[in-house]
Write a protein that binds this DNA or RNA. Structure first.
Length: 792
DNA sequence: ATGTTGACTTAGGAAGAAGTTG
DNA sequence: CAACTTCTTCCTAAGTCAACAT
């Protein structure tokens, strides 16, 4: 499909540019240092085989060049690196701090009103100008019928199994020709029938559940099933909305009660010992435990902490303790360090005992029964109290996260199940029987007032089905993405501002895999943005730069305050539109002032059933992996080299999605030790080769069996050592390239696992090399169902 | 439309376990 | 076997998106 990824080359280039400035600087810097280190090493060891080193470096360079040619991994060497010298993560913090200081206040008051003003203004502007025809055009443009008619025959991409067993219809996804409302009714009817049949098959426990014998019977049954690994993906799914029929669990585990400090551990205020009340002391320990962290030095953190701490103090304490700077937590901090040290020093037996106890708790609380199957729960422990630490420059950092009591907890389970008893002397806040949701336990958290849930493990049916469904939606997008791309390109010319903005935003989401960008409440969270919430200050337009035309420079903080930096050449039309959008705006005005995620997603829904902004991320990630694997894998390579190719493909995706990590603290050091190993291995190889030579010479002279055998064994040694060396070198390359890129997130959330499974099967790579145990559990469905010619 | 809330996915870092090495 | 590194699991914050309320 030519249109699969018209953007891919640029995407990947672009991505490397995403690291551009700061990261690149950093990378280049690191490269130099690395070389220096190598040189040092050489001098030290004197066994240097500089030839070898050079050749490896050359090899790497060549490889990188190749990749560059492919439009893959190499970053362009443009000179945009000067400005940013700090690594992304550090930088992002500083940046946001600065900005927040300056603009937070402004924003708070301004933004909402300004938005309204703006809207008013622009209405005037547009009605007088060229954007008159709004209503008609809007109707004209959304033109859903055309798109909806797009043949939706999943058959092409749907493995036979799926065909015979209908996919679950979360949003009536795969019946596309019928109007949604009708479907609902029909689906429910069908579902009822299906379920009746289904239940007859598996003997629902519903009726019998009060009977203990039958409970025991089901348990046995569950155990049996456990042994042979339930393949939920071969079974029918529930229709619309219903998530389960039976749900029983043991409730959550609460955080351990606070234990007072021993008397010898003292807290000082203004140089004098102060004995704190239990409540105040507990909160003090939270602070003391974090003392080593940088954020206890931050003004906002300290202010928030102190305010909340005072609330926990007795009135005497409150009058006595008025200045956090006069508080001395050192003894507390010291005490906790000793404690953790002591924990490390425990004997094997003690550790074993703790492990066993944990295992017992896991067995008791870590599983639930959902529809005749025992399933693992993800987070069965209630979050303990502590100090809130948001990410980035969070206005609420340092606030007290309060202890959750049974009275805060809502239990969700089925009516016919054994409701978990609350801890003695307590009651649950509520017991609910809602099978339209997947959670077992919920409570409201006190920092943001949001609801927290206990849900099932990713290996569970309920999560797995949804995950599978996600990739199926992305595959449906694959089939109509060309149309959608043409559609938004047309919309760049629209007379209506709203449509143009929508089209440009969608272009970014598609090309750059940006997140949708919901509005957020000012002052409640860190100042981060996604596509729809970009502000004028987040982009710069360069009509020409580095011999490229129409370049947009992005620089903003995204989710988790991870910095997104990228210079992207765009089409002229996009560029001109951006200029238009930015006209007469302040830096802190919204770039897309007529757009939000709701509008965008509604439009997408019209283009394809189930399509939302985030599907583009999934789609582009998966299609990139597939294409990169195709390009990078060399069938003649050995396993290690193939895996390097896989990791590189994975890396291309991680870069596309801007999945970063802080470089491991020990990165430089571990690189050096690895290099030393490589050097040692090279020496060993040289020795082995010499041995082989002399053995050969020897054999020539002697011509006896023994010396022949000797030659053979020496040959083998050389081969073995060569392989080992190769493996080390591959490892070094891989690690180097991975310094601040996190592969895990995309692997876990964006890449259709069937692509990887198919790749493994095709090239004879054991799946364990790609997925660890947890990942194999999560992707069991894919491992079971994908064969080597699976295509995304 | 706009705002609010609830449910669920996505995310990076910390802690803990396992593996490696001197 | 202790110290260190690396891999895995845990933790929970921070997004997305749809349904509902205004």
């Amino acid at each position: 499909m030519s249109g699969d990824q018209p953007h891919n080359d640029s995407q990947i280039n672009v991505d490397f540019r995403a690291n551009d400035s700061h990261k690149h600087k950093d990378k280049e810097h690191r490269h130099k240092e690395h070389k220096k280190d190598k040189e040092k090493d050489r001098e030290k060891t004197k066994h240097s085989n500089s030839e070898h080193k050079d050749s490896i470096e050359k090899k790497h360079k060549e490889k990188e060049k190749e990749r560059h040619k492919d439009g893959s991994l190499e970053r362009p060497k443009d000179g945009s690196s000067e400005k940013h010298k700090i690594t992304s993560l550090e930088r992002s913090k500083d940046d946001s701090l600065e900005r927040n200081k300056n603009s937070l206040e402004k924003h708070k008051n301004k933004h909402k009103e300004k938005d309204k003003e703006k809207r008013r203004e622009e209405k005037v502007r547009s009605s007088s100008g060229d954007v008159k025809v709004k209503k008609e055009k809007e109707n004209g443009f959304s033109s859903p019928p055309r798109i909806k008619d797009e043949p939706n025959d999943d058959s092409l991409y749907t493995p036979p199994k799926e065909n015979s067993k209908p996919l679950k219809r979360f949003r009536n996804d795969d019946i596309c020709d019928i109007k949604p409302k009708k479907i609902k009714i029909e689906d429910i009817k069908k579902a009822k029938k299906r379920k009746q049949e289904h239940e007859e098959d598996i003997k629902p426990k519903k009726v019998k559940s009060k009977n203990k014998d039958s409970h025991a019977a089901t348990r046995k049954k569950i155990k049996k099933e456990e042994e042979q690994k339930w393949k939920w993906w071969e079974e029918e799914r529930y229709a619309d909305g219903i998530k389960w029929k039976f749900l029983e669990h043991k409730g959550p585990i609460f955080a351990p009660q606070y234990e007072s400090l021993p008397d010898k551990v003292k807290f000082y205020y203004d140089g004098k010992v102060v004995k704190l009340s239990s409540k105040a002391e507990e909160v003090a320990t939270f602070f003391a435990k974090m003392l080593d962290h940088e954020y206890t030095t931050k003004e906002i953190f300290r202010k928030n902490f102190f305010k909340d701490w005072k609330k926990e103090m007795t009135s005497e304490e409150r009058t006595a303790i008025t200045n956090l700077n006069k508080c001395n937590f050192n003894e507390l901090s010291q005490y906790f360090k000793e404690q953790s040290e002591a924990r490390k020093q425990m004997t094997k037996e003690e550790k074993q005992k703790i492990k066993e106890e944990n295992e017992k708790l896991l067995q008791e609380y870590g599983y639930c029964v959902m529809d005749n199957h025992k399933e693992r729960i993800a987070n069965f422990r209630i979050e303990p109290p502590g100090l809130f630490r948001g990410r980035g420059n969070h206005p609420k950092m340092g606030r007290l996260k309060r202890r959750i009591r049974p009275e805060d907890i809502i239990i969700n389970c089925s009516k016919d199940s054994k409701v978990p008893p609350p801890p003695s002397g307590h009651k649950w806040k509520e017991i609910r029987h809602d099978n339209k949701v997947t959670w077992l336990v919920s409570w409201t958290e006190n920092i943001q007032g949001s609801i927290k849930y206990i849900m099932l493990n990713p290996s569970s049916r309920i999560k797995g089905e949804k995950d599978w469904q996600k990739y199926e939606t992305a595959r449906r997008l694959k089939k109509c993405v060309d149309k959608i791309r043409n559609n938004y390109r047309e919309d760049w010319k629209s007379k209506e501002m709203k449509v143009r903005q929508r089209a440009v935003a969608l272009y970014f989401i598609d090309k750059l895999a940006l997140r949708a960008g919901n509005e957020k409440e000012e002052g409640e969270t860190a100042d981060t943005v996604g596509c729809c919430s970009l502000r004028v200050e987040h982009i710069k337009l360069h009509p020409e730069i580095d011999s490229q035309e129409y370049v947009v420079e992005f620089d903003f903080l995204g989710k988790d305050s991870i910095r997104y930096y990228n210079k992207v050449p765009v089409e002229k039309r996009v560029f001109k539109n951006l200029q238009l959008f930015m006209e007469n705006k302040q830096t802190d005005d919204d770039l897309f002032d007529r757009l939000n995620t709701g509008i965008l997603n509604k439009h997408l829904q019209d283009l394809m059933e189930g399509l939302t902004a985030k599907v583009f991320r999934t789609y582009n990630a998966s299609i990139t992996l597939q294409q990169q694997l195709k390009e990078l894998t060399n069938g003649d390579d050995n396993v290690a080299a193939k895996i390097l190719s896989y990791n590189r493909a994975n890396r291309a995706v991680a870069i596309l999605c801007n999945h970063q990590r802080a470089p491991p603290k020990t990165f430089e050091k571990s690189m050096i030790t690895l290099q030393t190993k490589i050097d040692a291995k090279k020496d060993q190889l040289a020795d082995a080769k010499r041995d082989l030579k002399s053995a050969k010479a020897d054999a020539k002279v002697r011509r006896d069996e023994k010396s022949k055998r000797m030659v053979e064994s020496k040959k083998k040694t050389v081969q073995r050592v060569e392989e080992q060396l190769m493996k080390l070198e591959v490892q070094a390359t891989d690690r180097e390239e991975n310094k601040q890129i996190a592969l895990g997130t995309s692997k876990l959330n964006y890449l259709d696992p069937r692509i990887s499974v198919a790749w493994c099967k095709k090239f004879g790579i054991p799946i364990e090399k790609i997925y660890n145990k947890t990942q194999r559990e999560k992707f069991a469905w894919a491992i079971d169902m994908a064969d080597e010619d699976y295509e995304f």
